[in-house]
């Protein structure tokens, strides 16, 4: 299950979406998310769906790759859906014993699920088509003005990109340590909450130790390659807007206006 997390997993392909500037993609994703949470009605839904799948098609990332990211949060989705389904007061549709499903509940559950799924898929399009480095570069540049008020933007961006690189490694490591402790009779499943938490010690201590060791090694390796922070660094991929970004902005803004119009008219 841990392997299914698609966050931070770049999918290399030669597509228009890949070629966009990360800032364009950040902006686009932001507008898309706003649009998802402000839509109402079937027409709005159709417009969003068409746009999302068109972008996914453009990105050349296989659809099942996107859907894998959803698997990891499936349980969360189901639980949230259930809450909406059963706990929304209103006009009852079906009543089983004391629990009733209301018209409003059904509507909320469907809306909520669609919104969550589209939210995840929308942001997966960004993370799958943008290397974590580009993404942090984008954030670094977009947030650059904050440098003036002493926010260490470069350092934060660097930490983020390193974290993204090491998440898959640490996940794999967790799996390994878990197996090793299970081979020594450790039990990570049974028992109450407190016992369960206590049982995690043999997993968490080695994991922390390993993370620190890796951090140490990495710091040394970065120093050996002359890293001294953001000053005086050049960029391998400096961010410059090109024609495709202008088109990108136009498409995204056009899409957003269209949705707002649909919303206003209906």
């Amino acid at each position: 299950m841990l392997r299914d997390i698609t966050l931070g997993q770049y999918y290399p392909a030669d597509s228009k979406i890949h070629a966009l500037d990360p800032r364009t993609k950040l902006f686009g994703t932001l507008l898309f998310i706003i649009s998802v949470f402000s839509f109402e009605g079937v027409i709005g839904f159709v417009a969003i769906t068409v746009f999302l799948f068109w972008v996914i098609h453009m990105s050349k990332v296989p659809l099942n790759f996107m859907l894998r990211g959803l698997k990891a949060i499936m349980i969360l989705l189901i639980i949230a859906g259930m809450f909406n389904l059963f706990l929304t007061p209103g006009q009852p549709l079906v009543t089983i014993w004391k629990i009733s499903i209301t018209r409003e509940g059904l509507r909320n559950a469907i809306m909520m699920t669609i919104r969550m799924v589209y939210l995840i898929m929308g942001s997966s399009v960004m993370t799958l088509t943008t290397t974590p480095n580009q993404l942090t570069d984008g954030l670094e540049k977009a947030l650059h003005p904050l440098n003036k008020i002493n926010v260490p933007v470069h350092e934060i961006a660097m930490m983020m990109s390193i974290a993204l690189r090491f998440i898959p490694i640490l996940i794999e490591e967790t799996d390994k340590i878990m197996k090793a402790q299970m081979a020594r009779g450790a039990d990570f499943e049974s028992g109450g909450l407190i016992k369960k938490a206590k049982n995690m010690v043999p997993l968490l201590v080695p994991l922390f130790v390993s993370a620190f060791r890796r951090a140490n090694d990495l710091a040394l390796a970065m120093e050996a390659r002359c890293y001294v922070g953001g000053d005086g660094r050049t960029k391998m991929m400096p961010l410059v807007y090109t024609q495709i970004d202008r088109v990108g902005y136009a498409v995204v803004i056009g899409y957003f206006i269209l949705l707002m119009v649909i919303k206003a008219v209906l």
Binding site: P132, R165, L218, R225, Y227, T234, M236
Partner: peptide, 24 residues
């Protein structure tokens, strides 16, 4: 594993030159 900084091969190789200010 503990000396590769970037999540894409070519970006990692570019890390050193970036640090010493080599033009793009």
């Amino acid at each position: 594993d503990n000396q590769i900084i970037a999540s894409v091969v070519q970006e990692d190789v570019g890390f050193g030159p970036e640090n010493i200010g080599v033009p793009t």
